[in-house]
Design a protein around this nucleic acid. Sequence first.
DNA 1: CAAGATTGATTAATCAATCTTT
DNA 2: AAAGATTGATTAATCAATCTTG
Lengths: 143, 143
Amino acid sequence: MTETTAEHLAALLRTAGFAESHVESRLAILRLSLAKLAALQHLIAAGGTLALGQLADRLECNRSNVTQLVDRLEADGFVHRAPDLNDRRSRLAVITGAGRVVYEEGTRARTRAEQELFASLSAEEGEQLIRLMAKLDRAAGAR
Amino acid sequence: MTETTAEHLAALLRTAGFAESHVESRLAILRLSLAKLAALQHLIAAGGTLALGQLADRLECNRSNVTQLVDRLEADGFVHRAPDLNDRRSRLAVITGAGRVVYEEGTRARTRAEQELFASLSAEEGEQLIRLMAKLDRAAGAR
DNA sequence: CAAGATTGATTAATCAATCTTT
DNA sequence: AAAGATTGATTAATCAATCTTG
Protein backbone atom coordinates (compact mmCIF):
# COMPACT_ATOMS: atom_id res chain seq x y z
CA MET A 1 0.00 0.00 0.00
CA THR A 2 2.77 2.44 -0.81
CA GLU A 3 3.56 2.10 -4.53
CA THR A 4 0.18 3.25 -5.86
CA THR A 5 -0.53 5.82 -3.16
CA ALA A 6 -0.23 8.75 -5.59
CA GLU A 7 -3.11 7.47 -7.70
CA HIS A 8 -5.31 7.30 -4.62
CA LEU A 9 -5.14 11.00 -3.82
CA ALA A 10 -5.57 11.94 -7.48
CA ALA A 11 -8.59 9.64 -7.84
CA LEU A 12 -10.20 10.91 -4.63
CA LEU A 13 -9.80 14.61 -5.50
CA ARG A 14 -10.81 14.06 -9.10
CA THR A 15 -14.00 12.18 -8.24
CA ALA A 16 -14.96 14.59 -5.47
CA GLY A 17 -14.54 17.43 -7.97
CA PHE A 18 -16.78 15.73 -10.54
CA ALA A 19 -19.41 14.87 -7.92
CA GLU A 20 -19.38 18.42 -6.57
CA SER A 21 -19.71 19.91 -10.08
CA HIS A 22 -22.58 17.55 -10.84
CA VAL A 23 -24.59 18.74 -7.83
CA GLU A 24 -23.53 22.40 -8.07
CA SER A 25 -24.64 22.60 -11.70
CA ARG A 26 -28.18 21.53 -10.71
CA LEU A 27 -28.29 23.99 -7.81
CA ALA A 28 -26.97 26.86 -9.95
CA ILE A 29 -30.24 26.80 -11.96
CA LEU A 30 -32.01 27.88 -8.73
CA ARG A 31 -29.34 30.55 -7.97
CA LEU A 32 -28.12 28.18 -5.22
CA SER A 33 -24.91 26.38 -4.28
CA LEU A 34 -24.01 23.75 -1.69
CA ALA A 35 -22.60 26.51 0.54
CA LYS A 36 -25.79 28.59 0.31
CA LEU A 37 -28.04 25.56 0.81
CA ALA A 38 -26.16 24.51 3.95
CA ALA A 39 -26.53 28.03 5.37
CA LEU A 40 -30.30 28.05 4.67
CA GLN A 41 -30.57 24.61 6.27
CA HIS A 42 -28.95 25.80 9.51
CA LEU A 43 -31.12 28.94 9.55
CA ILE A 44 -34.32 26.89 9.21
CA ALA A 45 -33.15 24.36 11.82
CA ALA A 46 -32.58 27.28 14.18
CA GLY A 47 -36.09 28.66 13.59
CA GLY A 48 -35.22 31.15 10.83
CA THR A 49 -32.66 33.38 12.57
CA LEU A 50 -29.03 33.03 13.62
CA ALA A 51 -26.25 35.45 14.57
CA LEU A 52 -23.49 35.34 11.93
CA GLY A 53 -21.03 33.94 14.45
CA GLN A 54 -23.42 31.11 15.35
CA LEU A 55 -23.88 30.36 11.66
CA ALA A 56 -20.09 30.23 11.21
CA ASP A 57 -19.82 27.76 14.09
CA ARG A 58 -22.52 25.46 12.65
CA LEU A 59 -21.06 25.59 9.14
CA GLU A 60 -17.66 24.89 10.72
CA CYS A 61 -16.10 27.71 8.73
CA ASN A 62 -14.50 31.09 9.03
CA ARG A 63 -16.43 34.15 10.24
CA SER A 64 -15.31 36.20 7.26
CA ASN A 65 -16.47 33.44 4.93
CA VAL A 66 -19.95 33.71 6.45
CA THR A 67 -19.97 37.49 6.01
CA GLN A 68 -19.47 37.01 2.26
CA LEU A 69 -21.87 34.04 2.06
CA VAL A 70 -24.62 36.12 3.72
CA ASP A 71 -23.77 39.00 1.33
CA ARG A 72 -24.57 36.67 -1.59
CA LEU A 73 -27.71 35.25 0.06
CA GLU A 74 -28.85 38.80 0.78
CA ALA A 75 -28.24 39.86 -2.84
CA ASP A 76 -30.41 36.90 -3.93
CA GLY A 77 -33.16 37.93 -1.50
CA PHE A 78 -32.95 34.62 0.42
CA VAL A 79 -31.82 36.23 3.68
CA HIS A 80 -31.70 39.68 5.26
CA ARG A 81 -29.59 41.11 8.04
CA ALA A 82 -31.14 42.45 11.24
CA PRO A 83 -29.62 44.06 14.35
CA ASP A 84 -29.14 41.86 17.43
CA LEU A 85 -30.93 43.65 20.27
CA ASN A 86 -29.08 41.60 22.90
CA ASP A 87 -25.58 42.45 21.63
CA ARG A 88 -25.02 45.40 19.36
CA ARG A 89 -21.74 43.97 18.03
CA SER A 90 -23.67 41.04 16.61
CA ARG A 91 -25.79 40.88 13.45
CA LEU A 92 -28.56 38.41 12.71
CA ALA A 93 -29.18 36.55 9.46
CA VAL A 94 -32.95 36.08 8.95
CA ILE A 95 -34.30 33.76 6.25
CA THR A 96 -36.95 35.28 3.93
CA GLY A 97 -40.02 33.68 2.35
CA ALA A 98 -38.11 33.34 -0.92
CA GLY A 99 -35.31 31.69 1.06
CA ARG A 100 -37.68 29.09 2.50
CA VAL A 101 -39.13 28.34 -0.94
CA VAL A 102 -35.74 27.98 -2.63
CA TYR A 103 -34.50 25.82 0.23
CA GLU A 104 -37.25 23.28 -0.45
CA GLU A 105 -36.56 23.31 -4.20
CA GLY A 106 -32.81 23.13 -3.64
CA THR A 107 -33.09 20.23 -1.23
CA ARG A 108 -35.13 18.25 -3.74
CA ALA A 109 -32.65 19.08 -6.55
CA ARG A 110 -29.68 18.06 -4.40
CA THR A 111 -31.35 14.79 -3.40
CA ARG A 112 -32.09 13.92 -7.03
CA ALA A 113 -28.51 14.72 -8.06
CA GLU A 114 -27.11 12.64 -5.19
CA GLN A 115 -29.28 9.70 -6.14
CA GLU A 116 -28.05 9.89 -9.73
CA LEU A 117 -24.49 9.78 -8.45
CA PHE A 118 -24.83 6.97 -5.96
CA ALA A 119 -27.56 4.88 -7.59
CA SER A 120 -24.92 2.68 -9.26
CA LEU A 121 -23.44 1.67 -5.89
CA SER A 122 -24.72 -1.45 -4.13
CA ALA A 123 -25.59 -1.28 -0.42
CA GLU A 124 -22.25 -2.93 0.31
CA GLU A 125 -20.32 -0.46 -1.82
CA GLY A 126 -22.10 2.40 -0.06
CA GLU A 127 -20.89 1.02 3.26
CA GLN A 128 -17.37 0.59 1.88
CA LEU A 129 -17.37 4.24 0.84
CA ILE A 130 -18.41 5.45 4.29
CA ARG A 131 -15.83 3.19 5.97
CA LEU A 132 -12.99 4.31 3.70
CA MET A 133 -13.82 7.99 4.12
CA ALA A 134 -13.87 7.62 7.92
CA LYS A 135 -10.46 5.94 7.86
CA LEU A 136 -8.99 8.70 5.69
CA ASP A 137 -10.52 11.39 7.91
CA ARG A 138 -8.62 9.97 10.89
CA ALA A 139 -5.38 9.86 8.88
CA ALA A 140 -5.84 13.49 7.77
CA GLY A 141 -6.33 14.51 11.39
CA ALA A 142 -9.98 15.58 11.07
CA ARG A 143 -11.31 16.57 14.45
CA MET B 1 -29.01 2.46 -1.76
CA THR B 2 -31.29 5.49 -1.70
CA GLU B 3 -32.06 6.30 1.96
CA THR B 4 -28.51 7.18 3.06
CA THR B 5 -27.40 8.73 -0.22
CA ALA B 6 -27.11 12.23 1.30
CA GLU B 7 -24.43 11.07 3.74
CA HIS B 8 -22.38 9.68 0.88
CA LEU B 9 -21.89 12.98 -0.92
CA ALA B 10 -21.22 14.79 2.34
CA ALA B 11 -18.67 12.17 3.39
CA LEU B 12 -16.92 12.19 0.00
CA LEU B 13 -16.63 16.00 -0.18
CA ARG B 14 -15.65 16.30 3.47
CA THR B 15 -12.89 13.69 3.22
CA ALA B 16 -11.57 15.03 -0.07
CA GLY B 17 -11.40 18.48 1.53
CA PHE B 18 -9.44 17.17 4.52
CA ALA B 19 -7.07 15.17 2.31
CA GLU B 20 -6.47 18.16 0.04
CA SER B 21 -5.82 20.47 3.01
CA HIS B 22 -3.41 17.93 4.47
CA VAL B 23 -1.29 17.86 1.31
CA GLU B 24 -1.67 21.58 0.50
CA SER B 25 -0.45 22.56 3.96
CA ARG B 26 2.79 20.64 3.40
CA LEU B 27 3.29 22.15 -0.05
CA ALA B 28 2.57 25.68 1.19
CA ILE B 29 5.81 25.58 3.22
CA LEU B 30 7.68 25.40 -0.12
CA ARG B 31 5.52 28.18 -1.66
CA LEU B 32 3.83 25.44 -3.70
CA SER B 33 0.32 24.05 -4.19
CA LEU B 34 -1.11 21.01 -5.98
CA ALA B 35 -2.04 23.25 -8.93
CA LYS B 36 1.47 24.71 -9.19
CA LEU B 37 3.12 21.30 -8.76
CA ALA B 38 1.03 19.78 -11.56
CA ALA B 39 2.00 22.64 -13.87
CA LEU B 40 5.71 22.17 -13.10
CA GLN B 41 5.33 18.42 -13.68
CA HIS B 42 3.88 18.96 -17.16
CA LEU B 43 6.58 21.51 -18.01
CA ILE B 44 9.36 19.10 -17.01
CA ALA B 45 7.70 16.20 -18.85
CA ALA B 46 7.62 18.41 -21.95
CA GLY B 47 11.33 19.25 -21.66
CA GLY B 48 11.00 22.52 -19.72
CA THR B 49 8.84 24.59 -22.07
CA LEU B 50 5.17 24.64 -23.10
CA ALA B 51 2.85 27.14 -24.76
CA LEU B 52 0.18 28.28 -22.28
CA GLY B 53 -2.55 26.68 -24.38
CA GLN B 54 -0.73 23.34 -24.40
CA LEU B 55 -0.34 23.57 -20.63
CA ALA B 56 -4.07 24.26 -20.27
CA ASP B 57 -4.85 21.16 -22.37
CA ARG B 58 -2.59 18.93 -20.27
CA LEU B 59 -3.91 20.29 -16.96
CA GLU B 60 -7.42 19.81 -18.39
CA CYS B 61 -8.40 23.28 -17.30
CA ASN B 62 -9.35 26.68 -18.58
CA ARG B 63 -6.94 28.88 -20.52
CA SER B 64 -7.60 31.84 -18.27
CA ASN B 65 -6.92 29.69 -15.24
CA VAL B 66 -3.48 28.89 -16.68
CA THR B 67 -2.77 32.57 -17.31
CA GLN B 68 -3.26 33.25 -13.59
CA LEU B 69 -1.43 30.09 -12.51
CA VAL B 70 1.61 31.09 -14.58
CA ASP B 71 1.34 34.61 -13.10
CA ARG B 72 1.78 33.08 -9.65
CA LEU B 73 4.57 30.72 -10.73
CA GLU B 74 6.33 33.66 -12.36
CA ALA B 75 5.98 35.77 -9.19
CA ASP B 76 7.63 32.89 -7.28
CA GLY B 77 10.46 32.69 -9.83
CA PHE B 78 9.60 29.08 -10.75
CA VAL B 79 8.71 29.91 -14.35
CA HIS B 80 9.17 32.74 -16.82
CA ARG B 81 7.30 33.71 -19.95
CA ALA B 82 8.99 33.82 -23.35
CA PRO B 83 7.72 34.75 -26.82
CA ASP B 84 6.78 31.91 -29.17
CA LEU B 85 8.80 32.46 -32.35
CA ASN B 86 6.56 30.13 -34.36
CA ASP B 87 3.32 31.92 -33.50
CA ARG B 88 3.32 35.44 -32.16
CA ARG B 89 -0.13 35.04 -30.60
CA SER B 90 1.26 32.33 -28.34
CA ARG B 91 3.39 32.68 -25.20
CA LEU B 92 5.71 30.05 -23.73
CA ALA B 93 6.06 29.08 -20.06
CA VAL B 94 9.68 28.10 -19.34
CA ILE B 95 10.66 26.42 -16.06
CA THR B 96 13.59 28.02 -14.17
CA GLY B 97 16.36 26.39 -12.13
CA ALA B 98 14.50 27.31 -8.95
CA GLY B 99 11.39 25.71 -10.48
CA ARG B 100 13.22 22.43 -11.07
CA VAL B 101 14.59 22.40 -7.51
CA VAL B 102 11.23 23.14 -5.89
CA TYR B 103 9.55 20.53 -8.09
CA GLU B 104 11.82 17.83 -6.66
CA GLU B 105 11.22 19.02 -3.09
CA GLY B 106 7.49 19.37 -3.69
CA THR B 107 7.17 15.91 -5.19
CA ARG B 108 8.88 14.37 -2.16
CA ALA B 109 6.66 16.40 0.23
CA ARG B 110 3.52 15.36 -1.65
CA THR B 111 4.54 11.69 -1.66
CA ARG B 112 5.18 11.75 2.08
CA ALA B 113 1.83 13.43 2.75
CA GLU B 114 0.02 10.93 0.51
CA GLN B 115 1.64 8.00 2.30
CA GLU B 116 0.55 9.41 5.66
CA LEU B 117 -3.01 9.60 4.36
CA PHE B 118 -3.23 6.18 2.75
CA ALA B 119 -0.88 4.15 4.98
CA SER B 120 -3.85 3.03 7.10
CA LEU B 121 -5.57 1.41 4.09
CA SER B 122 -4.93 -2.26 3.29
CA ALA B 123 -4.14 -3.26 -0.29
CA GLU B 124 -7.73 -4.43 -0.64
CA GLU B 125 -9.13 -1.17 0.69
CA GLY B 126 -6.92 0.73 -1.74
CA GLU B 127 -8.43 -1.27 -4.59
CA GLN B 128 -11.93 -0.65 -3.24
CA LEU B 129 -11.23 3.08 -3.24
CA ILE B 130 -10.09 3.09 -6.87
CA ARG B 131 -13.07 0.97 -7.94
CA LEU B 132 -15.61 3.17 -6.12
CA MET B 133 -14.13 6.39 -7.52
CA ALA B 134 -14.25 4.98 -11.07
CA LYS B 135 -17.91 4.04 -10.63
CA LEU B 136 -18.79 7.50 -9.34
CA ASP B 137 -16.86 9.14 -12.18
CA ARG B 138 -19.06 7.35 -14.69
CA ALA B 139 -22.21 8.37 -12.81
CA ALA B 140 -21.08 12.02 -12.74
CA GLY B 141 -20.49 11.89 -16.48
CA ALA B 142 -16.70 12.33 -16.35
CA ARG B 143 -15.28 12.16 -19.82
C1' DC C 1 -8.38 43.89 26.33
C1' DA C 2 -11.61 40.38 23.99
C1' DA C 3 -15.46 39.33 20.93
C1' DG C 4 -18.22 40.07 16.60
C1' DA C 5 -18.31 41.50 12.10
C1' DT C 6 -16.28 43.45 8.21
C1' DT C 7 -12.62 44.63 4.68
C1' DG C 8 -8.78 43.59 1.88
C1' DA C 9 -5.50 40.16 0.25
C1' DT C 10 -4.44 35.64 -1.77
C1' DT C 11 -5.36 31.08 -4.04
C1' DA C 12 -8.34 28.70 -7.31
C1' DA C 13 -11.63 27.77 -10.71
C1' DT C 14 -14.99 29.31 -14.37
C1' DC C 15 -17.18 32.38 -17.76
C1' DA C 16 -17.69 36.37 -20.72
C1' DA C 17 -15.53 39.95 -23.08
C1' DT C 18 -11.49 41.81 -25.44
C1' DC C 19 -7.20 42.31 -28.12
C1' DT C 20 -3.74 40.53 -31.14
C1' DT C 21 -2.36 37.61 -34.62
C1' DT C 22 -3.32 34.01 -38.01
C1' DA D 1 -13.71 34.58 -38.78
C1' DA D 2 -10.97 31.66 -35.58
C1' DA D 3 -7.19 30.84 -32.28
C1' DG D 4 -4.25 32.33 -28.28
C1' DA D 5 -3.79 34.96 -24.33
C1' DT D 6 -5.37 38.24 -21.19
C1' DT D 7 -8.68 40.99 -18.24
C1' DG D 8 -12.58 41.48 -15.36
C1' DA D 9 -16.40 39.31 -12.94
C1' DT D 10 -18.20 35.77 -9.76
C1' DT D 11 -18.06 31.94 -6.28
C1' DA D 12 -15.48 30.07 -2.41
C1' DA D 13 -12.31 29.53 1.18
C1' DT D 14 -8.64 31.40 4.36
C1' DC D 15 -5.81 34.83 6.82
C1' DA D 16 -4.47 39.32 8.54
C1' DA D 17 -5.89 43.71 9.79
C1' DT D 18 -9.49 46.88 11.47
C1' DC D 19 -13.53 48.90 13.68
C1' DT D 20 -17.18 48.71 16.99
C1' DT D 21 -19.04 47.23 21.17
C1' DG D 22 -18.76 44.72 25.56
